[in-house]
Design a protein around this nucleic acid. Sequence first.
DNA 1: GCGACAG
DNA 2: ATCTTGTCGC
Length: 314
Amino acid sequence: MDDPGSAVERQEEQQTQVPEEIKDKWEREQMTLKKQMILTDSGDITKLMSCCNEKTSDNFLIGGVDISFVKGDNVNACAALIVLNFPQLEVVYEDCQMIKLTAPYIPGFLAFREAYLLEEMYSKLKKTQPQYVPQAIMVDGNGILHPRGFGLACHLGVLLDTPCIGVAKNLFQVDGIENDDDHQLKIKQLSKGGDTFQLVGTSCKVLGKALRSCDSAPNPIYISTGHKITLDSAVELVYRCCKHRVPEPTRQADIKSREYLRVHFGSEHEEQKNKGKKKQRTKTTKHSKTDCNPVDNVEELFQDTYCLFEGNDT
DNA sequence: GCGACAG
DNA sequence: ATCTTGTCGC
């Protein structure tokens, strides 16, 4: 009953199971935080937008966050927080951190898997390099384009009290917005970079916009407000950050986090249900970017500091 | 019962 | 999210 090798298998199987009471709790938390959500431009955003038109290149900064996963492992991952200057789009700060995801991915509850980790990285930035705290952050995922109007970008925005923009690569079908033939037709009608169409919910509210982010990518990305920014400003800002389909802040975060995993784990993913509990990387002790935290002993990094089912009474 | 399901 | 080679284009 207690064979050591099944631990990994077990964690995969239980991945999809989350008690209803936990979801209820999460929903209530979303509703509570949602009251603090602001859908208008912050002062910084207003200035940021005017900076584009005029040539006053003040030192505006845009952040991007993303998490990359170890292949075949639903727990161990690398989170990246990147800051770029604007409109030059040069990386001025990067932080990669090995993390341990405690909650499974449940559509509609992505924030409970990722948000608090990103919050910690933001706190680190604020504490150690305050001069690089960005005026806005782009998030992989949705803002108000969400079953309860409070996606990861909203959640993180409220937690950080900072403008956040939701940038999703796939449409989250919500509130009557469907990826049907009509939707596909509208996509075909996006002829060039910068073209958009609205994503209108049941109550005629515009929840987001599909944006063809560059000429070379026919598939749009889906933008929605996270916090302290209007949809139009969000779309504008995202578009101005697009060299490729995915805007640079998010794209750089993706690149850096994957690179970090590659450097520290290489091609040897040992998690294939081996009985060997000890992995040995007796090679490549390369010290890469000083921005990233070197990882020598993975085990010691993964101390349990967070429990999903803490308030488990009844 | 069936489909949908951000990352 | 991840699995994956070549290929077309600037």
